[in-house]
Design a protein around this nucleic acid. Sequence first.
DNA 1: GTTCCTGCAAAATTTTTGCATCAGT
DNA 2: ACTGATGCAAAAATTTTGCAGGAAC
Lengths: 142, 142
Amino acid sequence: MSGWADATSAALLAKGHRNGGARRIVIDLLGEQNCCLSAQEIFDRLRDTDRPVGIASVYRVLELLTSEGLVQRIELGSGIARYEPVQRSGEHHHHLVCDSCGKVEAFEDPALERALHRVEEGSGFAVAAHDVVLHGACGSCR
Amino acid sequence: MSGWADATSAALLAKGHRNGGARRIVIDLLGEQNCCLSAQEIFDRLRDTDRPVGIASVYRVLELLTSEGLVQRIELGSGIARYEPVQRSGEHHHHLVCDSCGKVEAFEDPALERALHRVEEGSGFAVAAHDVVLHGACGSCR
DNA sequence: GTTCCTGCAAAATTTTTGCATCAGT
DNA sequence: ACTGATGCAAAAATTTTGCAGGAAC
């Protein structure tokens, strides 16, 4: 699970970036997650540890990781961006959002991935990432 | 094409909302579009007409229409929300975004819709809308 | 006439940037 | 040492809200 964090730090080093302090802390935290976190959530979780990180640094780390394709930026409709690790295996999930209570669930679906892949091939774009968000009411709210 | 604008105004009236001034102007503009607009784009396009609308009213109209399910709010990854009419026919498209030049293209794909529908049925959520965004480099930028 | 709608301005939220200082190589 | 990274604070960008006046029904 922390394989992503190590691989990510290594990838940054290989590209000439340094790797200490805030950057490593944020990467480690992201690597422990299995779903997406917002910049504010990252800041808040680190605030009360012995290694707090400035909010500006959080944003800068996320921007760097996103531009290097190491994390994916995801917007779930609430107006705030969330970020999650990109697995080198290509494995990834999508999101179900309850517009009533805000709950977020992840799901995977191979058939959906195949359909997306076919669209991407015919698109004329070099598609680097995709994003699927389903909005509705969750089991408790429906 | 303006069928949507008329139907939307009628739907609001039926729910007890009034329908004059800014609200109708924004609805008419949305009805003329075939893809999504941001609040700022709507404000800017109306600013130089003989019927400008305050930015706060633009947001309020969009919020109302979104909550009534008459427009869909879409986030394409730039941090700003975009809005587009929801066709009663159920017909809709998804978006390809060039992360390099910002170009947005729409696409439709029945096989993708079927795959999404199957996921939605097995999700445990009452899915009201879905959103697919493909990110990459367009033909000119790749 | 009553109630909702609108616009302006102010506020709140999220994200970015300037700059001096600090840390990694 | 050199250069990039960090934190703080200020700024920018986007969205929301308060309130007084105006319009729809």
